[in-house]
Simulated scan of single mutants.
Amino acid sequence: MLDKVIENNRVSIIGEVVSEFEFSHEVFGEGFYLVNVSVNRLSDMVDIIPLMISERLVDVTKDYRGRKIEVSGQFRSYNRHEGVKNKLILSIFVREMQFIEEEEIPEEQARTNQIFLDGYVCKPPVYRKTPLGREIADILVAVNRPYGKSDYIPCIAWGRNARYASTIEVGGHLQIWGRVQSREYTKKISEEQVEKRVAYEVSVSKIDVVEEEEA
């Protein structure tokens, strides 16, 4: 059962550490820390992705900025209370990691950023077009975890995938392949104040609906 649940949320990336470790929280005496990794896209852009790492996997007192790292794990979410609101916090929960040298990375893996999710649509997908006519659909996917928990992962689909996603009803079971990306956006705080923020989401390259078997 546990193996099956873990299989429904798999992510692997290769990137460069670009921050120091920052304490996040502790569970049963085990400390967890956040660190940011820069992952190259096929274009000249990069994604800055937060990793959640146990102090038992790496020496969190050291500064690894500039080092290349290979990671596998799960894309997870949790709600952080900010005043009267909840904020969805996303990061890659690291299960395995290793530092690697630049020359050890095969050229075809230099931009590794892959994710697979098997979950359920938990709110109606939002379909729209950009001013240039590009089709986009936002999908919020709930992925089950052991012990009755779930991760809520924002996904974004394009083109025909966006049109297809817009037809999926709440509760629909789907599988998604893609990559984890970061995206800057501007949040209006008040009439005079705007704030730059970063969103994390899955950019969908393939999406399939899973037909449920009848009991």
Results as ranks from 00 to 15, higher is better:
M1S: 14
L2Y: 09
D3M: 11
D3G: 11
D3Q: 09
E7C: 11
N8S: 15
R10H: 04
V11C: 11
V11Y: 00
I14K: 02
E20P: 04
F21R: 00
F21N: 00
E22T: 06
F23Q: 11
H25K: 13
E26Y: 08
V27C: 12
V27H: 04
F28M: 12
Y33F: 12
V35D: 04
V35P: 00
N36G: 02
V37S: 10
L42K: 12
L42S: 13
S43C: 01
D44K: 00
D44S: 00
I48F: 09
I48C: 03
L51I: 06
L51G: 00
I53E: 01
I53Y: 02
E55I: 07
E55P: 05
R56H: 06
V60F: 12
T61S: 15
D63F: 01
D63E: 14
G66Q: 03
G66A: 05
G66Y: 07
R67A: 14
R67E: 10
E70F: 05
V71L: 01
F75E: 05
F75P: 08
F75D: 11
S77C: 06
Y78M: 10
Y78C: 07
R80S: 15
R80M: 11
E82F: 12
V84W: 07
V84T: 13
N86G: 13
K87I: 10
K87L: 06
K87A: 14
K87R: 10
L88E: 08
L90S: 03
S91E: 09
I92M: 09
F93N: 15
R95S: 14
M97Y: 04
F99D: 05
I100E: 03
E101M: 07
I105N: 10
E107K: 10
E108Q: 12
Q109A: 11
I115K: 03
F116E: 13
L117Y: 02
D118F: 09
G119Y: 02
G119A: 02
C122I: 15
C122G: 04
V126Q: 10
E135I: 07
E135C: 01
E135F: 04
E135H: 13
I136W: 01
I139D: 00
A142R: 01
V143Q: 05
N144I: 03
R145C: 08
G148Q: 08
G148K: 03
K149M: 11
Y152M: 13
Y152D: 05
I153W: 00
I153K: 06
P154R: 10
I156F: 01
A157Y: 00
N161C: 09
A162Q: 02
Y164S: 13
A165S: 10
A165E: 06
T167P: 07
T167W: 11
L174A: 04
Q175L: 06
W177H: 06
G178E: 08
G178A: 13
R183E: 09
R183K: 14
R183C: 04
Y185V: 06
Y185Q: 12
T186D: 12
K187F: 13
E191F: 11
E192T: 11
V194H: 10
R197N: 08
V198G: 02
A199D: 09
Y200Q: 04
V202W: 00
V204Q: 01
K206E: 14
K206S: 14
I207H: 05
V210F: 02
E211G: 08
E212K: 01
A215W: 06
